[in-house]
Design a protein around this nucleic acid. Structure first.
Length: 294
DNA sequence: CAACCAATTGTCCTTACGTCA
DNA sequence: CGTGACGTAAGGACAATTGGT
């Protein structure tokens, strides 16, 4: 993984022209609606004050007790831990999670018990007889995680541990959450980028169409005899079939049977359109991949 | 070996739809 | 015919796992 740090970026940069400020890519991850009313306080600092080792931060959250295991309050520490598998049974009832107050249910449902000490990744899964249960983080937990993510999209082990303690989650859960969150962010960015590219493509297509039309009109003009009389009686407009450059030449000069490009100094090209000489698929600027985004 | 990522799995939940009383 | 309760399939969201780098 080389893109470790910018990992979330697709790094696109499109030079679509200066006159399209509106197309500037805004890749700030779309804030989830639920975050809109959250004050922008610095959870990070709250979480990890200068000396970040005060791990006993349980109270900070003002009652995020959600997943507290009845018996085993501190159910983790990287090594000897609990597994979500144990949370399976606690509640069978269908929980209307999106309900505003699902917390106590949550608390019951989401216990972190020391059933399987694996946590460390390893076998985690298979051991439980019941199929794994889906755990849902409480609103508060998600909120804190989200705020923390805003500060840093990655955690070092110490931070992970502190956050896990604070939220009463296992470090592994915090880690997974961050992982998934990064993935979501990246996905959203990619989607936004796609949208942007699509718009760019549309614009360019449109412009290309317009320019082709212009070329056609100019060609028609060139063929019109009246125009020849009006514009430049002694000379004729000729267009090089290869480069599609329109040039005027005197009758004597045009008499040469085979077409040759005139030397630049002698060639009088008519500036029809800045891009008239370009090959039809107009290329403004290649998409250069590695561009930094902020 | 640990951290990360991409892909995938499995669960929960909502929604839309049909059926029936 | 309109209405509410009920069951179900489809699809989205997301936590968790797996395998690779």
């Amino acid at each position: 993984m080389e893109d470790k740090n910018d990992g979330l970026g697709l790094s696109l940069s499109l030079g679509c022209g200066q006159n399209q400020p509106s197309l500037k890519l805004n890749l700030i991850p779309l804030a989830s609606p639920c975050m809109q009313n959250i004050q922008q306080r610095n959870i990070w600092n709250e979480l990890f004050p200068s000396s970040d080792r005060e791990l006993d931060t349980r109270s900070v959250l003002g009652g995020i007790d959600v997943n507290r295991a009845p018996a085993t309050a501190e159910c983790e520490e990287e090594g000897g831990v609990s597994s979500p598998s144990s949370a399976v049974s606690s509640i069978s009832g269908k929980r209307n999670e999106r309900d505003p107050v699902g917390d106590e249910t949550e608390a019951a449902r989401f216990s972190c018990s020391p059933s399987s000490d694996d946590d460390d990744g390893g076998g985690g899964v298979g051991d439980d007889d019941a199929s794994r249960k889906k755990l849902r983080l409480s609103k508060e937990q998600s909120l804190v995680l989200e705020e923390t993510f805003k500060e840093h999209s990655t955690l070092n082990p110490k931070q992970k541990l502190a956050l896990a303690m604070k939220l009463n989650l296992r470090p592994r859960q915090v880690e997974v959450w961050f992982q998934n969150r990064r993935a979501r962010t990246k996905l959203k960015r990619t989607e936004a980028d796609c949208e942007y590219l699509k718009r760019c493509c549309d614009n360019l297509t449109e412009e290309n169409r317009r320019l082709q039309k212009e070329v056609q009109e100019l060609r028609a003009l060139k063929l019109s005899p009246q125009l020849n009389m009006h514009i430049n009686p002694p000379t004729t407009l000729t267009m090089c079939p290869s480069c599609e450059r329109v040039s005027s030449s005197s009758s004597s000069a045009s008499s040469t049977p085979k077409h040759r490009h005139l030397s630049p100094d002698r060639q009088r090209s008519v500036p029809v359109s800045p891009w008239a000489a370009l090959p039809l698929p107009i290329t403004h600027q290649p998409f250069n991949a590695p561009a930094s985004r902020s």
